[in-house]
Amino acid sequence: MNGRVDWVAHGVLCCGVLLFVLPLWLLLAGATQDAGAISRGELSLLPDLRNLGVFWSVLNDRAPGGAPVWHMLLVSAAMALAIAGGKIIISLLSAYAVTFFRFPFRMLCFWTIFITLMLPVEVRIVPTYAVMADFGLINSFTGLAMPLIASATATLLFRQVFVAVPDELVEAARMDGAGPLRFLRDILLPVSAANMAALFVIVFVYGWNQYLWPLLVATDPSLDTIVIGIVKMIGQDSVTDWNRVMATAVLALLPPVAVVLLMQRWFVKGLTEGEK
């Protein structure tokens, strides 16, 4: 603005950045160090570059009675992708239906979907568990992913995007002879691609980071997600291999962080627009 360096701003922001980067750095550094040293409280801030192989070797680690880390990563990825894909598809379709059509009980449908805003999985864990048991979905991948696919937020976000599509654009397509499905495919999907990307990031992170639901519905170790696995690891009374726990935590962090960083531009825009 006036050519002077804004030291206060840099100072505050650097502190903020350190607040988040430092723990992450500790995690990275700790992963490469000697387990014994960490246990004695001699965690160094300098990573031991000779031990970078730990990130690879840790893939075969497992909590007692659990699945190996690579398997948990796979389960997490599958679950996050299934939830993201499923949620985007069904909310896109339902938002399209309530926005571009008039049909009987349309508002009832809309409010039914809307009401789920007020029913996060946490407040209805016990009865949802019971329903899942009735359907025989306990300890199944379907049971893990499916209940998390439905939610109002994604539908509301798409609805908002769709309502903002100019009427004239729809009319132009109709004059060009496009029917509803053709319009959805040729015009609406490409036009809202950025919003879909944003939603993908949000839902992928949401799915990857789930804890309570997998804890409940999948007691079978072969369905353990990486988040569940980590908590199991540090939950033991005597953790010895701290460096390997740290390496696992790094692996658990990597995918969602990568998704957020790679798609940052769309993600920030989509998140803040959708919530208003």
Binding site: P166, E168, L169, E171, A172, M175, I187, P190, V191
Partner: peptide, 12 residues
């Protein structure tokens, strides 16, 4: 065929 006030071109 119709020409719209805001043109209504397909942006993509």
């Amino acid at each position: 065929a119709m020409v719209f006030q805001n043109y209504a071109l397909y942006p993509h």
